[in-house]
């Protein structure tokens, strides 16, 4: 028996919207830790890791140890679009061996209750071990600003060079029509803490990434006012959006490497 009641149902809607362009189908894992997912895009260039901790749910019951539920994200998205933004979402399943999952949507006033049953799928997914890393630079900035930069640069070029130095974090691209550079300096003198740009640098780092993926990651912007970008010269970048009181969604993107 699995029963997860999420009062802020819109979080789940936003999470799936941020994943569905990169991930076709995936196993959601339910354990005592929480509701989680690890999946790669079909080219294995990006890896997505989601955690919604069990204590963030109003009710969290998962009796079967680790219980993977294979879902096609496009179908899940269709169903979650039927939930109102203020609805409470309850996910129910009978346990291993059962091939359906039920989503119940309750309006805040409880005057409307809907349930949608979705077929589960068997998915062969390989879990990757993500090593604990020492990053050369960790930058926290407003998520809307990061989204804006990725969108702006993708009208000029296909790749972005992200460099962190004492000066700040620099995003550069070049294309047929010309070049673009955007520098964000550390800025902690802001009225609201979420507007700050904070740069922790151990050593300068510069890496090249495909902008198409970065733009996809920014679909998670509605989940958090801030984004954290962690860079090391020999590792995938980690773009993390914290999910209030519940966990995170992390996007790992493999760099482009000079031949």
């Amino acid at each position: 028996m699995l029963e997860l009641r999420l009062v802020q149902g819109s979080l789940l809607k936003k999470v799936i919207e941020s994943l569905k362009d990169l991930v076709n189908d995936a196993n959601f894992d339910c354990s005592s830790t929480g509701f989680s997912l690890q999946a790669m895009d079909s080219s294995h260039v990006a890896l997505m890791s989601l955690l919604l901790r069990s204590d963030g749910f109003e009710h969290y019951r998962c009796d079967h140890g680790n219980f993977p539920m294979g879902m096609k994200l496009e179908n899940l998205s269709k169903i979650l679009k039927c939930a109102g933004n203020d609805d409470i979402i309850t996910i129910k399943a009978d346990g291993p061996g059962n091939d359906t999952v039920t989503f119940m949507f309750e309006s805040p006033s409880q005057e409307k209750i809907a349930d949608y049953e979705m077929k589960l799928m068997d998915i062969d997914s390989e879990h990757l071990g993500i090593p604990e890393a020492e990053f050369h630079a960790i930058v926290r900035m407003p998520s809307s600003e990061f989204a804006r930069i990725c969108k702006d640069l993708s009208s000029i070029g296909d790749t972005v060079v992200i460099s962190v130095t004492k000066e700040g974090i620099k995003f550069s691209t070049k294309g047929d029509i010309g070049t673009a550079n955007v520098v964000c300096r550390q800025n902690t003198t802001v009225d609201k803490p979420e507007d700050a740009t904070i740069i922790e640098m151990q050593q300068p780092v510069s890496l090249t990434f495909a902008l198409r993926y970065m733009n996809s990651f920014t679909k998670a912007t509605p989940l958090s006012n801030t984004v954290t970008i962690s860079l090391s010269s020999d590792l995938p970048v980690v773009v993390e959006y914290k999910i209030a009181e519940m966990g995170y969604i992390r996007f790992y993107l493999a760099p482009k490497i000079e031949e």
């Binding site: 080219s43 260039v45 031949e259």
Partner: peptide
């Protein structure tokens, strides 16, 4: 030119 690497180059299967 630069070549796109993959996640599996960096992280191994469990």
């Amino acid at each position: 030119g630069s070549k796109q690497s993959t996640i599996t180059k960096f992280f191994s299967k469990l």
